[in-house]
Amino acid sequence: MQTEFPHNQSAHCESGVAANLLSHRGIPLSEAMAFGMGGGLFFGYLPFIRINQLPLVTYRSAAGSILKRLARAPGVRLHQRTFRSQQQAMEALDQALARSIPVGLQTGVYWLPYFPRALRFHFNAHNLVVFAKEGDDYLISDPVFPQPVRCPAADLARARFASGALAPRGKMYYLEQVPESLEPAPLIRAGIGSVCRMMLKSPLPLIGVKGIDFLARRLASWPRRLGRERADLHLGHVVRMQEEIGTGGGGFRFMYAAFLQESAALLAEPGLEAAASALTAVGDRWRSFAVMAARICKDRPQAEDSYPAMAAIIHDCGARERQVYQELSAWLRSAPCR
């Protein structure tokens, strides 16, 4: 059984796992690149889905979609399965480890004992890589942690069979086959194309740039509709989804900017560099919303802090993002396909 795995700490679990698994197989890939090629950027405000009685706000694409897109790259084959029984799931994991295959797992954060207590909520789409077993403990490369961690088998089994929204049902995956090297240009184009489509062309008003505007309108009406206390809770929830662990800051916008910068250098495309700077500015704008929101949640508002002021910032974020995606779409149309 092997005990070496290239553990690189990353900001987001799914793209981090994808990057680490590919790097392990000799295809060095940064987290930001995996995030961008996997089309990870998104926005959705889905008030009919409730998390702890608060509306779902998401700044990233659905859990598992980054891996799914990367697995579609030519020459890559990802083995993936879910289980009915805990025993079968753990046996399959042990068998893969015995063959020296590092295995990616989807887990529920609440049941992982090594997680900081303050971050243990019932969130079931956390990805990690198990790369070895020592006695009754598994050695885990959890991409959001600086070093590999240890987890007892019983706790890991619980985490793999967490219930509730996005229940993992023991989901495990590993790379069965990888090409000699990945041709980056088509993957970058496909990733950018999918993000532009989702953000600009969604028919639903809750998704993409339209969703950002929708959130802004809703947010302005929260104090009137929900009362001050509930409105503050809703507000805090939005900021948590935007900034808490796994986002890389600014609701994944900084991470995507990193991807655009890396792609610009790789493909020698100055257009992407400009889009990256614009997106960094959007991320900073999202952060100024978060700062104002935090002051309101803390009950220490400054004179200019108010719900309408925050709604105006979010509208501004939406308008700027629309421009960025329009520029990226134009780049996709104009740049020659290699």
Partner: peptide, 19 residues
């Protein structure tokens, strides 16, 4: 944009505490 080690941004602490 560089991947930079650090701790949580202060507003995150505020909203986490609120939750």
């Amino acid at each position: 944009q560089q991947l930079t080690p650090g701790s949580f941004w202060q507003p995150v602490e505020v909203v986490n505490r609120q939750a």
